[in-house]
Structure formats: structure tokens, C-alpha cells
Nucleic acid binder design. Sequence first.
DNA 1: ACCAGACATTGACATCTGTCAATATAGATA
DNA 2: TATCTATATTGACAGATGTCAATGTCTGGT
Lengths: 121, 121
Amino acid sequence: MSKSFLELTPSQTVACCSPMTREPLSAVQAEQISTLLKALADPVRLRLMSLVLSHEGSEACVCDLTGPFELSQPTISHHLKVLHEAGLLDRDKRGVWVYYKARQDALDSIAALISLEPARR
Amino acid sequence: MSKSFLELTPSQTVACCSPMTREPLSAVQAEQISTLLKALADPVRLRLMSLVLSHEGSEACVCDLTGPFELSQPTISHHLKVLHEAGLLDRDKRGVWVYYKARQDALDSIAALISLEPARR
DNA sequence: ACCAGACATTGACATCTGTCAATATAGATA
DNA sequence: TATCTATATTGACAGATGTCAATGTCTGGT
């Protein structure tokens, strides 16, 4: 059984849309895209994404991600949750550790939306 | 005489950076990029950008942009200012009317930052 | 069974953000 | 000058957001 529409991540709901440079966005489309962009539009979350992307396999343990910041562990955990729920990071628990993996396809969806060129594939 | 660093728009300060998918962002870089993304990460501003982009010459008068929304004129004016200060819209006053023109290069800069591929040029 | 470590959740708080009503400014026209 | 129209600014307010301390929940090891 497939997930209901409401259970899709923002990145999944956005993947279908044609670039905003071609025709005006509907109010609903704009809401979905803004949800995805808001997830990225934070300095800590941008650095988290770039840290994960810089690890081999675009994957990193939470323990790798708390050190670079002068922020509490719950705060990092909160930001990772935001990125995960937006569909920008996959989550994989292995024993005690939790690994987050970057979804390059989600990033490409965003790039395709705001750029004139069709998405790389 | 050139403008000081602090007077550059977010889009200008970001244009130089290598993609975040290649190496971790510094805290300063992340702040600059997030400023630019925050400007886009709002449903009304996304629709404003797409409306401007859909007009001929990627240019539209404010009077073309207030109708599609059920928002007050000062609110639209506020959002246009945010987009302008981020470097996403150019501003041109012609008589009584003000025309905003989309900066496709600024949008491309964002796309280049978050995508693996080098920017289209 | 117990403990220790890794990560998540909760609740509280200060700051930021989007919105509007009211007002201001600036250009065109009479 | 007076007035009308297009757009911007100001000030106020409610709701969203980022942060932390405290606490909870797993998992592995002793």
C-alpha cells in the first residue's frame, strides 16, 4: 500500500513540478517548495548538509556532526530532524549510532526548480 | 569607487563559493547562503519570483503583482524589498511605476551551490 | 540486572518574521 | 497649488523558529 499524499516528504511533493522560471507557481506549489527551501535556509542546517556530503558515501554519524558546532546536542538533533523530515537526509540507525545520508536527488530537485535548465539525470 | 564588502547583496557574496557538495561550508559562508535562501523560502516570495519570471523580459510592474494575492499592498511591497535586497530582483522606477526584474544569474548561483554539476554558463 | 553512552523528546524562552492599518513620499495631471 | 495614483515606510502584533536544560529511550557491555 502506498503512502498517502500527506505522508510524502516535501522533497517528494516538489520533485514533480516544472521550473518556476517557466510559469507562475500555484499557491499550493509555492507552499510545498517553500517548506523544502526553509529546511535548507538555515546556517546550521546548511553546514550540516555540507558536512554530511563531504563524508565518504555522503553519509555521517551524528557523533561526527556535533563537534564542529558550539551548539548543544539536542539542537543538532533538532536540525537533523528538520532536514530528515524535508527529505534532504535519510536516517539509518546502526547499533547505538545513527547515520544520516544526503539525498542528492532532493538537492537536484531544488536546483532544477530555480534554474532555467532541465534537471541533470 | 567600488562598493564595500558589506554593501554587496547576498547573491553577490555567494556567487564566488564552490558547491556545498564538495567541501564543508564555513560558518561565514553558511550565513551568507542562508540569507539568500531565506529570501526565497517563503511561499509569497516564490510566487512573486515566478510571476516576474513569467512576464516578458522577466520584468513586471508592482501593479501586476498585487492582484494575484489576497494580501495588502504594503505586504507585497515588503516581500519585493526582501527579494531586492537579497539580489534576486532588480528595481527600476519609471515614472509612477516601479518595475522589478528577475536576476536569473542569482537563481543560477543558488542552483550551482546545491547541485553537483558546475553552473550553466 | 545494571550501567554507560548515543541520540531523541519535551517544555520554556527570547528572537525573528509575516501581516496589517495608518501614514508618508513621489510623480502626473488639472 | 491641489489632488490623485502608485509605491514605500512605520509601528504594532500574533505566530513561527532556534536554542537550551532536563529528561527519556534505546543499545551494548559488564
